[in-house]
Design a protein around this nucleic acid. Sequence first.
DNA 1: GATGAATGAGTGTTCATTCAT
DNA 2: TATGAATGAACACTCATTCAT
Lengths: 190, 190, 190, 190
Amino acid sequence: MTGEARPLRADAQRNRARVLEAAEVVLARDGLSASMRTIAQHAGVGLGTIYRHFPTQEALYQAVIIDRMQRLIAEADALLAADDPGAAFFEYFTRIVENATQKKTLADVLAEADIDPKAGMADISRDMRDVIEKLLIRAQKAGAVRQDLHMPELLALLAATCMAAERNQWSDELRTRTLSILFDGLRSHH
Amino acid sequence: MTGEARPLRADAQRNRARVLEAAEVVLARDGLSASMRTIAQHAGVGLGTIYRHFPTQEALYQAVIIDRMQRLIAEADALLAADDPGAAFFEYFTRIVENATQKKTLADVLAEADIDPKAGMADISRDMRDVIEKLLIRAQKAGAVRQDLHMPELLALLAATCMAAERNQWSDELRTRTLSILFDGLRSHH
Amino acid sequence: MTGEARPLRADAQRNRARVLEAAEVVLARDGLSASMRTIAQHAGVGLGTIYRHFPTQEALYQAVIIDRMQRLIAEADALLAADDPGAAFFEYFTRIVENATQKKTLADVLAEADIDPKAGMADISRDMRDVIEKLLIRAQKAGAVRQDLHMPELLALLAATCMAAERNQWSDELRTRTLSILFDGLRSHH
Amino acid sequence: MTGEARPLRADAQRNRARVLEAAEVVLARDGLSASMRTIAQHAGVGLGTIYRHFPTQEALYQAVIIDRMQRLIAEADALLAADDPGAAFFEYFTRIVENATQKKTLADVLAEADIDPKAGMADISRDMRDVIEKLLIRAQKAGAVRQDLHMPELLALLAATCMAAERNQWSDELRTRTLSILFDGLRSHH
DNA sequence: GATGAATGAGTGTTCATTCAT
DNA sequence: TATGAATGAACACTCATTCAT
């Protein structure tokens, strides 16, 4: 009833979080060959504990991705209110790619954002898509982004960049240089 | 060393080719979950035959990729002699992405072209890299591509586009639109 | 022994009964693949509560069986005082088989009644045996059942019929017809 | 090429037989809790070898049962040509129950013979059924078995007896006595 | 050289049981 | 006392790889 209350439930929440975190780390390290057993060890919990929180390996993976997308989507709010719509747009693009570089596994979802609205992923994908679309429209209205850029190719480029950044562990410098080139293609040619 | 002719050699070559081809098809269809047995069945050979030619699953996959890269590299020759160096450069970029869309599995290697020169892949990756570099330099000299575009970011963008095209099965239209945007970023701003 | 009343004892008894009932239902439905968790859910109690009352899955199953045997044994009392000992004997046999058809899981114990006096089962099995024996002797004295029928083969036939009825879910008609044949074998040939 | 030829194939056949035999033994000993690993160890083969021959645990179990039924069905041929149809009928019934006592696991199928024609079991069950029906009809024509005995109750009684004999490991004496009683019920009352 | 039977480590998943709350 | 979160042994099954034929 107080701030510190409900210790049992708290422990469970804590384990859930530990599993999620471990899954993120192990997935980043081992890729798709990560095993549930390894994740359990990494999280310092029993194998069964994972299954208490996530009924399936796939469910766990989805939860990892959803978790990260939620955080990313939350970051967009501030940018949607930013003074410079163009800067906001490019910053968010950059932020997403940075995130992929660090954490991996995001790309797959972004990849499917425009394509495969599977299971519980559908909603969150749509949310991400919507947020990106809003930033795009604002930036276009401000004349910072070319008018003939539409969502399909924007998502395609975003997904592509994330995948490569994640897979090849782009350095900060490479990311900067690469995005700089890419952004030149997205900007208005007055 | 032997007095006899080598009719079997022809058969062996044939089997090797059959396995390679089957591996390409099955990898494209089943992705990483493709099994050696499936490939053997598809090739119409015994499981052991695969192992005679390729010591390891990984070796087979590498061979598939090398095979495709060789063909892609060969395609570059004509373009290196083309009249319009800019068009040649963009055409080759497009060609590689098309290839990824159709056949899958290429992206991974391209991805690593600038990074992970593992095993026998090193040489062919370097060849590919060289060919691309030559096309780039010609195009830059002709003023068709910006001077400040260097190999790392070019390869990064190429890898990114291939991965996404392969994974998300870009339609012809999406590929055209996406590359059009991207190419605007690569071009010279006079 | 304590100075306090025991209102909780009533709750405990109630939970024990609920678990027992749920176990019967779930065992009938799911057979041996029934899980403790399912039973707990069905009973509307926590998993731990089952273990408070029954230390082991096996103990619970035994309790279910003992419970049912007790009820069956109780039914025998009236028949032991019945006017027609022959009818009483055959009716009880029939009743037991009917019970097996409806509820499942009884057969296994009956099966072991003459054989495996394990754990707390021993007593109740003996009670059941005694009651059957009494009915048999009365029926034999009344000339309704052949003299050379002894307990081992009677129990064997009873167990056999229960198992099959339970496993194959005999219809009422099949049970009637089958027992009719069987009973002809048990009757006296004058 | 001679009687001893084809060693490779022979080995495979041999392993299949070994697995089948081991499965029979282990199933008899451990019941349904028998594990594939245990069977493999018992057979002296690797775990994968079982799966080479039987795609599924269920498939293996079915194969065990089918194997035994085939042998039993083969035994019926001689009896179908016997001089005394009544004796032949009762002998076959006895033979099947004996078999169940020794080997276990047969009962389940017999149980389902009249009921659940699942998968590849259907044919062999039908064969068994047919053979029993032929023996029954001959015995009825010879006046040795009551006319009003029909297949459903005959199969029910056979299944029942097999189950109990198998589960409770009837001694020879118990089997003789029990069947003797039962057969009195099957015979004609002139 | 070609075959495919054999192998067993490894995987995802279930479930009886324990114990902190 | 009741709860259900945690545990991990156990299971069916897959698949890269080896090797006898």
